[in-house]
Design a binder for these strands. Structure first.
Lengths: 252, 252
DNA sequence: TGTAGAGGTTGACGCTACGTCAAGGTCAAG
DNA sequence: CTTGACCTTGACGTAGCGTCAACCTCTACA
């Protein structure tokens, strides 16, 4: 007693194309093939097929299923490692969802400022997780509310100021002057003043390690291409870092 | 001021291949292309690229990103619908994880758990020999994995359904109606539908020997006291057999 | 000025698990 | 013998690039 390809497809709730595919990849061969090429499947083949479909529903890939079926490998082990993968996926999804939510909220909060303001290198929500990880939730919350508390005009001003600073750094770096030149040191001073406008920046108050903060930031500009991009790439960021280091040594 | 393909790739944290791909699909064209074919990108292009990469990190597909960039679609709208998709994915993942966990737990579980859960009137292992004889050596394993793949809740539902079916058969048999009565035939139909829920049952096969299978099962219910017990003993099983035979004759 | 070496280009295949034609052979029924 | 349902084997398409392969181009150095 056996069935044609369409018949078991219906019985098992799949398609004939899938069965041909399984045949092609060697996952499930027909129990019998007639001289005309027609595939026929019997009971045990149906059972195998149902096992395959079950494992597939659990999310296993065809090669993994083949391993389980052919090599008699431990199903529990296969499922366990698969479970880890699922957990990682879930985690990634959760963070992505949080990220998207945050982005939507921010965009809704200020409607059209997003197109220009969010994506031009001054997006703080983009790095929410990272900021929280590095400096804590409070730091992010403070930064966020600081930014949101600004009017559109203020935001624009801040953005312009930031952009001009970045542009001037790039120009200076490209001009070939040295990081300890007066020009570069002027920029460094401006940069520090700019930083003080951001909440969370350590002050000269007791316990505030301004020097370490500024030099550390410089390193980050070089190390992180996302920051480096603001200063014309790695070479520009290197210039900024060096200038900041010199400035910090002298004045902080 | 512009950058070569490798340079912006580094600045933006991606690869030159990706940039060529974006060029190919029309997502991001170089700001300038020299006669030798070399691609060069300027500041605005970098900004666009960063927008693209952000949206991509949020999980949007390239076509969706293209829509957003072309202003054909509101970004919030795009992200919102994407969020729905993400939520569905998360839900699917969660259920898949629960399913896999359940399967693993049950498979890890020692005989005690299984004995308790399965030997209370719905023991499919009880029919191991018959199943193997009819369907092959792997049949029991498949049926077993089918059963263990169910969540506790699903198992309970299955058990309830099975129990109710048996109880209804007993009631019908005791009421004295004939096997070809509407009531009995309704039960037969339910019975066949119930059988469809068990993997290995050829009930959906148009050309398969469904009729023989069902009538054969009926005979088995009568012949085997372990089966008969589910239908109130031999007399009850006889009633079931007769009703099934009539039903199979008419509808299968 | 010849030549290495770094970096650029355009194909084109690979990956997942099949869906979806396309062109043509097979089979049961009227 | 025709019709229509069902079967076969290719072969392309999918998402987003990674990864050769084969072949320019530019810069730097002996």
């Amino acid at each position: 007693m056996d069935w044609s390809i369409q018949e078991i497809a219906k019985i098992a709730g799949t398609t004939s194309r899938t069965l041909r595919h399984y045949d092609d990849v060697g996952l499930l061969k027909p129990s019998r093939t007639r001289h005309n090429g027609y595939r026929y499947y019997d009971g045990p083949a149906l059972v195998q097929l149902q096992r395959i479909l079950l494992l597939r529903e659990l999310g296993l890939g065809l090669p993994a299923i083949a391993e389980v079926l052919n090599r008699e490998t431990d199903t529990v082990k296969a499922l366990s490692s698969h479970l880890e993968w699922l957990a990682r996926e879930q985690d990634r999804l959760a963070r992505q969802i949080a990220s998207v939510r945050q982005t939507i909220d921010t965009m809704k909060g200020d409607g059209k400022y997003m197109a220009q303001d969010m994506f031009d290198g001054f997006d703080h929500t983009q790095y929410k997780d990272e900021v929280e990880e590095r400096w804590g939730k409070d730091a992010y919350a403070a930064s966020d509310s600081w930014w949101r508390g600004m009017s559109a005009e203020e935001k624009q001003q801040w953005k312009d100021r930031s952009q001009k600073l970045g542009a001037d750094w790039i120009t200076a770096a490209a001009s070939g002057v040295s990081p300890d030149s007066a020009e570069a040191q002027d920029l460094a001073q401006r940069h520090v003043a700019w930083l003080r406008g951001i909440p969370g920046t350590p002050t000269a108050a007791p316990g505030g390690d301004v020097k370490g903060y500024v030099t550390g930031l410089g390193e980050m500009y070089v190390a992180d291409p996302r920051f480096a991009a603001n200063y014309g790439g790695e070479s520009g960021a290197t210039f900024v870092r060096d200038a900041l280091r010199v400035y910090a040594e002298k004045h902080l």
